[in-house]
Each structure stands twice: as structure tokens, then as C-alpha cells.
């Protein structure tokens, strides 16, 4: 079944049961005009580089240069304030040998996976709810979006204040209403600390999911549902055979961005737990930060912050590949 998209008649949307996207996510640029002689092409190339100059300058000086200098740093035993000596991969070897590394790696994976998973489920739920017709829906959309507008520093501080063992909202509430008689040490109980950190990350990051998912839901042509209904599909079937396939690309992109943002975030742990209790919430960005600035071992700090990098790169390559393939099919 093919549906013409009303806003863009050139783009046909295929919506078979697998409903793969066939839109414009192409590796090859669409050519404007007829086949052209090479002189024009060369000109196009010049123009392209011209247009990209500011972007490339930004990437070169503000991202690539600092990044490569961080790699170089990770191969030195450099301390703050003193010149470093080239030590090859000694920092990485030391790190791999340290048992702190294993614990941190496990925590980082757990933290990222659970937080992203919960944000996904919660975000999808929010988007589905907000997609239902309802009075004042715009107001609800704005309200549920609010956490995204709050600076991460403030989110973390505010939640720390909610979790505070002696003066926080949670303990006050629970004790006032006699749910518990003793203080619950939210951020210092080894069984609760990671869960609390993840809860804050989820609180802060879910609106991004609900925003993009909602955007995706609204782009699904109503005709598809009508057609499915005529074919006798139940609401649940519609959800699995129309909605989910149409959102696949959005899922991938959102999860990819969010995985990066979650895995590299420093502020939540830094403000909430500082990696405690007993390293239960220690993750790479925080370990790198304390090593580089607390211990002032810049080389080692760089190594720690880079050690997670290949994992993320692999993840992203896998995701974008899939994305491009499903688009090209």
C-alpha cells in the first residue's frame, strides 16, 4: 500500500506490515537538475566547501583539536601544572588492571542501559497519551515537557534536596504520613543509590523521548489506521503493525542520541552521589573527572574518559547502519 504524503507528493511512503521508511535518508545526494558537465560539478564542490567552512572550523578547532589532544594526553603521565612524559598505553594498561575499572564499567553499562530503557518506555507512554485527543492537550504537553527545560545542574541539586536524608521532601513526607518511622537514606543506601540516580536521569531525559515520539506519532497518516481498521485490525494490532514500524527510525535516532548523552553525563553523579556509597554509582565520566581534577592526573583522566569511547562508537555505527539500511530498502 502506498500513501502519498500530502505535504510532499514526491515522497511516497510505503506502509506494508513492516512499514519500512523509504524516505529521504539517502547517502547519495539528490541531484538538482539534469546530468551536468564536470565543470559545474567542480563548482558545486567549491560551493559546498564554502558553505561548510564555518561548521568545519567549529568542528576542527572546538571539537577535533581538543579531542585529539585528549588522546595524546592519555598517552602521557601528565599531571596538572607539570610537563608530561610519553608513556604509550601504560595508562590504559594500569586502568585495565585496576579492579575499580571493572566495577566502573559494569556500573556505567547498567546505568546507561536501565536509564535509556526506562526513558524509552516512559517516553513512549507519554507520547501515546499526549497523542490521544483531549481537551487542554497543549497544556499537558507543555507541563510534561518542563524537565527538559531545567538545567541539569539545577535538576541534580533539586533532587538532591528532595532526597536529603534530614530535610528532604521524601523523608519528610514519608514520616509525616507514617509510611516509615525511620529515615530512608536514599542516596547512601547501597541498594537505593543507583536507582535514585537513574530516577533523576529518567526524570530529566524523558521529555526528549516524548517530544520526538509524539512528533513521529503525529506524522503517521490517519489513513493508515483507517485502512487497518477496515481490514479488521484491533487497536493492539494497529499499534504493533502500524504505529511501531512507522516509529522505527525515530526510535533508533532518539535512543542513539540519548545513549550518548546519558553515558557521557557527569553532573548527575557528581552532584548526587560522587560515585558513592562504596563506588556503587561510580561511572566513567565521574571517575575521569575526579582523576583529572581531584588527583590532577590529566593523562590518566583522559585515558579513563576515552576508554568508553570505542564502545559508543561501535554502538553508533551499528545503529546508523541499520538506520541507513532500513531507509534504503
Amino acid at each position: 500500500m502506498l500513501v502519498r504524503r500530502p505535504d510532499n507528493p514526491r515522497v511516497a511512503i510505503s506502509a506494508g506490515p513492516r512499514g519500512a521508511f523509504r524516505e529521504d535518508v539517502l547517502v547519495e545526494a539528490p541531484a538538482v537538475g539534469r546530468p551536468r558537465p564536470s565543470a559545474v560539478r567542480r563548482q558545486e564542490s567549491w560551493l559546498a566547501w564554502g558553505l561548510l567552512t564555518p561548521t568545519l572550523l567549529v568542528i576542527l578547532f572546538l571539537v577535533a583539536y581538543p579531542f585529539f589532544s585528549a588522546i595524546y594526553l592519555s598517552l602521557q603521565d601528565k599531571m596538572v601544572g607539570a610537563p608530561g612524559r610519553f608513556v604509550g598505553v601504560a595508562n590504559y594498561l594500569d586502568l585495565l588492571r585496576d579492579e575499580v575499572f571493572l566495577r566502573t564499567a559494569w556500573n556505567s553499562v547498567l546505568y546507561t542501559a536501565v536509564a535509556v530503557g526506562l526513558k524509552f518506555v516512559l517516553g513512549l507512554t507519554m507520547a501515546l497519551i499526549l497523542d490521544q485527543p483531549r481537551r487542554l492537550n497543549n497544556v499537558f504537553r507543555t507541563l510534561l515537557f518542563v524537565p527538559w527545560a531545567v538545567p541539569v545542574v539545577i535538576v541534580a541539586l533539586n533532587w538532591r534536596w528532595i532526597f536529603d536524608d534530614l530535610s528532604g521532601f521524601l523523608n519528610n513526607f514519608l514520616i509525616t504520613f507514617h509510611v516509615t518511622s525511620d529515615i530512608v537514606s536514599w542516596l547512601s543506601d547501597p541498594r537505593l543509590a543507583m536507582a535514585c540516580v537513574i530516577a533523576v536521569v529518567v526524570w530529566s531525559g524523558t521529555p526528549f523521548y516524548s517530544m520526538t515520539f509524539l512528533a513521529g506519532l503525529q506524522a503517521i497518516p490517519k489513513e493508515l489506521y483507517e485502512a487497518a481498521e477496515i481490514d479488521g485490525a484491533s487497536t493492539l494490532q494497529q499499534f504493533f503493525f502500524v504505529t511501531i514500524p512507522r516509529l522505527k527510525t525515530i526510535f533508533l535516532t532518539t535512543v542513539m542520541l540519548s545513549t550518548i548523552w546519558t553515558a557521557t553525563n557527569l553532573q548527575f553523579v557528581l552532584i548526587l552521589t560522587k560515585g558513592g556509597p562504596a563506588s556503587r554509582t561510580e561511572i566513567f565520566p565521574h571517575l575521569a573527572y575526579t582523576t583529572a581534577l581531584g588527583a590532577r592526573r590529566l593523562g590518566m583522566g583522559a585515558a579513563i574518559s576515552l576508554v568508553f569511547f570505542p564502545v559508543l562508537v561501535v554502538l553508533i555505527v551499528l545503529l546508523t547502519r541499520r538506520m541507513l539500511r532500513s531507509a534504503d530498502e
Binding site: 545526494a29 558545486e44 564542490s45 568542528i59 565520566p285 575521569a288 573527572y289 583529572a292 583522559a302
Partner: peptide, 23 residues
């Protein structure tokens, strides 16, 4: 526009996110 290196740059844009700001 068509020019050599296009796909590389397009993908590179995503990778820049991976670079950890903390360092």
C-alpha cells in the same frame, strides 16, 4: 550538493557528540 567527502562529514557530525566535554 554533491562533493567528495560528503557522507563522511554527515556521519562525522554524529560522532562529535561522543567527545566527552568533561575533559
Amino acid at each position: 550538493l554533491r562533493f567528495p567527502g560528503r557522507a563522511l562529514i554527515a556521519r562525522g557530525l554524529v560522532v562529535t557528540y561522543l567527545v566527552p566535554p568533561a575533559l
